[in-house]
Each structure stands twice: as C-alpha cells, then as structure tokens.
Design a protein around this nucleic acid. Structure first.
Length: 481
RNA sequence: CGGGGCGUAGCGCAGUCUGGUUAGCGCACCUGCUUUGGGAGCAGGGGGUCGAAGGUUCGAAUCCUUUCGCCCCGACCA
C-alpha cells in the first residue's frame, strides 16, 4: 500500500505523525485560544462511545451522575495544603464579572474535590448517609505551558468520580474497584493493555494518601497515564468537615476517593493502534464499525443494483452491530482510490467494497483496516461474518499492543542495565526500587525516566537497583507523556 | 518559563539576503468535457488588506523598531 501523503511516518517524526493522524482523521483542530482544542464531530463521536462504556460501568457499580459548578471560590482550593500547592500554579482565575471586580476571585475548576467536599459536608450527618457515590462528566481547566492535542490541553473533558465512605477499608476498596473498572474497559473495549498499579510518592495526586493508575505503552515506547484513582484518606473530609456520627454515636470524618479518565484516552487510542496510513479505531469504540463502499462508474447500475444491496446489508448489520454503526460511502464524486484512503484514514475497522465483480458473485470484498487483509463475504453471510471479523480485529489489536509492550519491557537489576535501556530505544523497565522523591528525581535527571507505577499483581521483592536496600518492591519505569 | 523554528490564498510553500512589473507555485476548491477497482487527465475559473502596529523610502512581503500568535524540543502536569 502506498504511504499516505498527508501523514509523515512514525519513523521519521513521531510527534508530527501523531498530529497528522488526528488532522487526517478530522478528530480535532486547534482553537483560537492557546492550548485549547476543538473536538470535531468524528473525535467527539469517539469520545461519546468511550463515555458510554465507562458510564455504564459506573452505574453498574452503583454510582450516579450529578453536576457541580465550573467556578469554585478561590478560598476552597486553599483549604487543603497539598492540594493548593499542586493546583494553584495551573489555575485560571476569574476576577471580574458583570462589569465589576469580584469580592472573592473564582477559579475555573482544575478538578472538583473542593466544591464536592463542601457539599458532602452538608449532605452527610450520619453513617446512614454514607456511602455517597457520585460521578460527574464535565470539562476542567489546567493552564498548560505546553499542550498537545488530546494528551494535554488547557481545557479537557473528563469524568470525575467522588465518593465518601464510613470506613477506611471501604474507601480503599472503592479506590481499587474503580481502578479495576478502568483497567477492564481500557483492555476489553479500547484494546489498550495497561499496567494497573500504585503511583510513587512523587507522582501522587496533590492531597491524596495514595494514587493508583493505569499505565499504557504507546507505539514510541513511552508511557501514558490513562486513568487515575485516588485514595484521599480523611484529608479532604478534615479540610471540608465531612463528618458524621457512626453507629456507636461517635463523631468521625469520612473517607473519600476520587477517580478520573479524560479525553486523553483518545490520544492513547491514536498512539497505540494507528499506523502510517492513519487512524485505527478498535471496533468496540468505533462510532462507525463498518463502511460499505459501492463502486461503479455506471450511475444506473449504482442506483438500481449496488445501492439497494448496500442498504440491505446496512440494515441487517445495524441490527447486530448497533444503530448507525454501518455507513454507506456515497462520495461518488470521488474516485475509488480517494474513497478508500478517506475511509482508511478515518480508522474505520472494516470496509465492505462492492463493484461489478463482487455484485456478479454475490459478495462483498472485505478489507480489514488493521491488517489490510482482504477476503470475500457472501451477502447472505454478512450478519454472521462481520461481527465475527470485528471481534477478531478487536482481539488482534489488543494482543498486538500487548506483544509490543512485552517486547519492549526489560527487567534490570542495576543502574548500568537501567541506563542502557534508555540510552537505546527505551521502553518499560522493571526494577526493584526502594527510593523516594530524591532518588526518583536523580533517576529522571539522568535518564528521563520516572516511576510509572508499582504494578498491583506483583508481590515480588528484591534488592533496590538504585539504593541497594533489600526488600524493595518491583517498579516499572519509563519516559512518559 | 528557557532553547529552536515559523507566520505570504483553505493547506503546504517560493519570493525576503540584494526594496522596483499586475505577489507566484503545488495541492485543495468551483465549472465543463473525458475518465472511473487503490490518491486521474485536459481546459477554464474563483480566492490575498503578505500576522498586526509604527517607522525609513519616490516606492516595503522584502529594511528597522515594537508587538501578537502558532509549532517543535526541554523543565512542570490527566
């Protein structure tokens, strides 16, 4: 297949490739305001599908949606010491409104722990009021010095879950449960293999006792934090006075959690699955799962034979794959080559092409976006075969990404081996690590790599590669976005 | 916030050093004809206050000053 002429190769310039893919697929565009982006219809449709899967899972685990305001009194932020320190530098502040200077400046929310904490303190009096399990879908703003479409923009869309519990155990369980929900959807729906684990001290959410994250490897071997779940202890409950009377009649502070995934996931999909021809979307999140492309120079033949066939297949497939998931390409003003490329760059998982030759044989020529593989699907088998092929694509994308991660994950036991990996092509490095903030900083200065997480499903321990201390936990290091 | 690069048609660029026709090329767009199974061909056409402001000059896309914006690379972050 010819190289796409509007997309630079990954080999040549990875970050330009990323931007080219997004542009070619019409996912996003730059906004007139620095650091902000426009999410175009195809990008937004992808976000809606991502949202749909997460939202279902939140509701299945007992959460409900609500909405809290965009503007937060500046003083709220200041109630939690670490929180203000972490977020103040990147807050946008509203000082004027209605033509007058405000008595108290308002910040545009960078996250909502503070307002939500304020409200929870009103809503909670008794242990019977707990747990509170609320999620909100909204935009947030964190002023960024350097932005990148989907990965880091000043304004972004996300979901933030905020829960309050009567006991520490329950809150910890919630934190880990939601991490598991994230992992499940990322792997099974977005086809992103992720490492779920605990963050290091230096990477912790400002104000949290503990932060957990799902870390994914992009196709340039760098890590991307795809979602986080925080155990906030009683820090915010103390700051906002979320107190309640327990069943013994004693006053206690609630235990809270928060967890979020954002439009960054779109960036993760792009950088995990796409290739030099453009976007590749895993079928389960693809707004358009299959496109039918009737091809003929003969208008009469198109109208009387090809299009009716195409519509028939579309209707049948929409029943099995979901409403509106099959599109018919009717861009007949374009030449066939242009039409193929347009659909390739859009990342549509499967194309069903049909011209005179296929028509005579009663088949579609199916072409997989991920592998380029072609094969015939007889008309009468469409409903049965297409979903199966889409499942195969979904599966193959996941395992291909998993295999890539495995191939680029290295176990090291000393600093020398550690440096070698990052001096070469980079990747994930597994090493026993017992250092703190200082050691992390030194490692970052020397190699650019940071602790991505201490993976959950690993209870090995060994000698720290950096400090030589025994009994160290296994950490995964990488350069990251 | 530091380093680098760039602002000329929707996109990509040339022209700027060395000021001087009516500011040009490719792609895209519009019209017509011929085409049509993996990025078509021919012909015609539309589209620009050369990022902005000030200055030098008979004359500025080009020189000077100021300014705004964007992209890339680093430090900080979902």
């Amino acid at each position: 297949m010819d190289m796409a002429r509007n997309i630079v190769s990954r080999e040549k310039d990875y970050s330009q490739w990323y931007l080219d893919v997004i542009k070619a697929a019409e996912l996003a565009d730059y906004a007139p305001v620095r650091g902000c982006m426009i999410i175009r219809p195809d990008g937004y449709a992808l976000w809606e599908f991502i949202q749909k899967h997460f939202d279902e899972a939140f509701k299945d685990t007992g959460h409900v949606n609500a909405y809290f305001p965009l503007l937060i009194p500046m003083s709220f932020l200041e109630k939690e010491a670490e929180h203000v320190e972490g977020f103040a530098p990147e807050c946008a502040v509203v000082t004027h409104a209605g033509g007058e200077e405000l008595e108290e400046p308002l910040i545009v929310r960078p996250t909502s722990e503070t307002v939500i904490g304020h409200m929870y303190s009103k809503w909670v009096q008794s242990w019977r009021d707990l747990p509170i399990l609320i999620n909100q879908w909204c935009n947030v703003m964190r002023w960024e010095k350097r932005s990148r479409l989907f990965l880091r923009t000043s304004e972004f869309l996300w979901q933030e879950g905020h829960t309050a519990h009567a006991t520490r155990e329950e809150a910890v369980e919630e934190t880990l449960k939601m991490l598991g929900v994230y992992r499940d959807i990322m792997e099974n729906v977005l086809a992103l293999p992720v490492l779920a684990g605990e963050k290091s001290e230096g990477e912790r959410f400002p104000g949290a006792d503990n932060t957990y994250a799902c870390e994914a490897m992009m196709s340039d071997r760098k890590a991307l934090q795809a979602g986080t779940s925080h155990f906030l202890g009683q820090n915010f409950a103390r700051a906002f006075d979320i107190s309640f009377q327990n069943s013994d009649g004693e006053l206690d502070f609630a235990w809270t959690t928060s967890w979020g995934v954002s439009t960054r996931l779109i960036g993760a999909i792009v950088m995990t699955h796409s290739d030099d021809d453009g976007l590749v979307i895993p079928p389960r999140v693809a707004p358009v799962k299959t496109v039918i492309i009737p091809i003929s120079p003969d208008e009469t033949f198109l109208e009387s034979d090809l299009l009716p066939r195409a519509r028939e297949a579309q209707e049948k497939l929409n029943v099995v794959l979901g409403k509106r998931s099959v599109k018919i390409d009717t861009a007949f003003h374009m030449r066939p080559g242009d039409r193929f490329f347009a659909n390739i760059q859009k990342g549509i998982p499967l194309r069903l092409e049909m011209g005179e030759k296929e028509f005579e044989r009663g088949v579609f020529q199916a072409v997989r976006r991920d592998s380029g593989e072609r094969f015939d699907i007889p008309w009468e088998e469409v409903e049965e075969r297409v979903p199966r092929v889409l499942d195969e694509i979904q599966n193959d994308l996941y395992f291909k990404a998993l295999e890539f991660r495995k191939q680029n994950t290295f176990r090291v036991s000393d600093l020398e081996g550690f440096k070698e990996v990052f001096a070469a092509r980079g990747g994930f490095v597994e090493a026993f690590f017992a250092g703190g903030r200082e050691e992390e900083k030194l490692i970052k200065e020397e190699t650019g790599a940071t602790v991505r997480c201490f993976p959950m499903d690993n209870d090995e321990s060994g000698t720290c590669f950096f400090t030589g201390k025994p009994g160290a936990r296994l950490a995964v290091f990488a350069r990251s976005y």
